[in-house]
Design a protein around this nucleic acid. Structure first.
Length: 220
DNA sequence: TGCCAGGCCCTCTTTAGGGCCTT
């Protein structure tokens, strides 16, 4: 069992850099912002050199009642959202948290479309790249029976005490999974570091050619 | 009336179809 170091320290100087990673997760009213769905919770952790240095969690009022499926799925009720700030207020705060960092999410295509939609409403565009722990897992954990976040946490025997389908907990679990996969890549391919650009390249590579791509990256 | 996401990825593919994953 491997347990990535995960102590939370406050980022006192608010320094931002392209080397900083933000691992984020949305809870939403549904699957598609194009169908009118909105975010109801954002959770994120900030990683620097594999260490969590800050975190962000806010509920937000989408402006309409959420259905019972979402209440049951997330544990977030309409009563919990009543009186919370609206999405625009929360996402403006989150834009400040994100800065110019690179971004990661599990099944990033889902979180990216909500992030893009909510940021567009507040006129913010992030400058960092976006990568996906699910795509990386499909290439690194090829024997995993499933690539659902909860299943991967159990498969990798990562300690977890909390409620899945809440934004901050899922972001924390994704961060642990991410760190473990990066460690696996370092160990398997004898790399001192795994730059974000290499991860993005791996995620675009067919599974059968991952070793070849990493070998080329190393200059072999 | 009935349906309404969408990107990725595999295969019985590529002029397509269907499962996986996210809420």
């Amino acid at each position: 069992m491997v347990s990535p170091s995960f102590s939370v320290q406050k980022d006192s100087n608010q320094q931002r850099s392209a080397d900083t990673l933000i691992i984020l997760d949305f809870e939403t009213t549904g699957l598609s912002p194009n169908m009118g769905d909105r975010a109801i919770e954002i959770g994120a952790v900030k990683l620097e050199k594999g260490q969590v240095v800050d975190s962000f969690q806010r509920l937000m009022d989408p402006g309409f009642r959420i259905n019972s499926f979402i209440e049951n799925y997330t544990g977030i009720s309409n009563a919990m959202l009543a009186g919370e700030a609206d999405c625009e207020t929360v996402m403006t705060e989150f834009a400040d948290f994100v800065g110019d960092a690179n971004l990661i999410a599990h099944n990033a295509s889902f979180d990216k479309k909500f992030l893009d939609a909510e940021f567009e409403r507040v006129g913010f565009q992030y400058s960092g790249g976006f990568s996906c722990s699910l795509l990386l897992s499909r290439r690194i954990n090829q024997d995993a029976p499933s690539h659902k976040l909860g299943d991967l946490i159990r498969y990798k025997q990562i300690p977890s005490e909390g409620q899945f389908h809440r934004a901050l907990f899922d972001a924390e679990m994704t961060a642990k999974l991410w760190c473990l996969m990066i460690d696996d890549i370092k160990q398997q391919y004898n790399l001192a570091e795994v730059p974000f650009a290499l991860v993005q390249k791996i995620c675009k590579t067919p599974k059968a050619k991952v070793a070849e791509v990493i070998g080329k990256w190393r200059g072999e």
